[in-house]
Design a protein around this nucleic acid. Structure first.
Lengths: 192, 192
DNA sequence: ATCTAATGAGACATTGATGTCTCATATGGT
DNA sequence: ACCATATGAGACATCAATGTCTCATTAGAT
């Protein structure tokens, strides 16, 4: 795992702690710092050495989530090929950080006061993808790009939760989200 | 409004307080009792007279949400007509309590320890609707009913949030959720 | 007009989480 | 073998939220 290369084996894996924290906090938003520490398998003192306090932890969580989402957007190459394929790629790229992104999308608490400036840009990129799809005639135009963006977030969150709770197999994550978002529930005779 | 008939005008509208609390807590899960009281426009002491503590408040929130969702399920008459129409009716019925249901669907904290027994039944009814649609040939069968259920919850939550944040017009709530869930994003030539 | 009941504001003690500290231990590098 | 450094456990003070109380005020019933 590349992110461990420079880490001394004794030290805490910062990102791993954050991922664990995201999983816990998305399940129980009022979790204590002590609970977070226990969930991450480290001492409370150590957790405190890495994150000055709860605010700093949440901020770090926000930063990591935004960073990961940005990488997912980059990796998905939204401008290449059809918007439809680009959206599939984007959904695929969200899988490895589904829990973290689910937390990011649903915890609106994060954007209290100072809305993270980085987020607006990423949001615009997603919205832009849907717009492109609409302009290209691939996506329907009776649903606004803003709504499609929100819907994607919601489905990613639901998908992460469904996998985490064991209701959906991890391997079906991409398929279920992509198929539902693209095709909807209705069964269709013959197409594609 | 029927729920005020027996309430003395001076007394607090319990449900109104709960709805306000849901809107606030879904936005900021760590909100203080004092913040909840202020948001509801009542004193902290009064809030405390109606809900013994934070736990009691959350429990009441859970109860009301489940009650409202149950009423929505009843009103939607899921067994009548096509599953497709039934789903449309259900979505329509969620509108009046979108914020509360959004809170209920996303705040997984609620189901800590003792999963509310009432919830399982409602969950089964929704899942049953999707199963019926699949058996009738109206819904696609390559997406599990469990996932479709989770997806519906996610979209309702996203819809409530989109309306609440002003990104989507309130009047478009039903249309956007139903159309996306039923038809998906992909544009189709001629059908319906 | 009077009475009853619920409210809002605020004081207060209590609880629980937080943040800081020390110290013994263990790990990995030298 | 030795040293650096990070950790875990726990003690501790601090602070914020909680829960309980009183009391004046107000709304509504009679």
């Amino acid at each position: 795992m590349s992110h461990m290369v420079y880490a001394r084996l004794m030290t805490v894996d910062r990102e791993q702690v954050l991922r664990t924290a995201a999983a816990l906090l998305s399940r129980k938003a009022t979790a204590t710092m002590d609970e977070v520490a226990k969930a991450a398998g480290i001492g409370r003192a150590t957790l405190h050495r890495h994150f000055a306090g709860r605010d700093a932890l949440v901020r770090a969580l926000e930063d990591l989530g935004i960073r990961e989402f940005q990488m997912a957007l980059d990796a998905a190459r939204l401008d290449e090929g059809s918007a439809l394929d680009a959206l599939r790629r984007l959904i695929a790229e969200t899988e490895s950080n589904a829990a973290l992104l689910g937390f990011l999308f649903t915890e609106n608490q994060l954007f209290e006061g100072s809305v993270n400036e980085g987020w607006a840009e990423l949001d615009a990129r997603v919205s832009g993808l849907f717009q492109r799809g609409q302009e290209d005639g691939d996506f329907r135009i009776d649903l606004t790009a803003a709504w499609l963006t929100e819907a994607l977030y919601g489905l990613v969150g639901s998908g992460a939760w469904a996998v985490q709770s064991g209701r959906v197999a991890s391997k079906d994550y991409q398929f279920m989200i992509a198929e539902l978002l693209l095709g909807g529930v209705t069964r269709r005779s013959v197409e594609k």
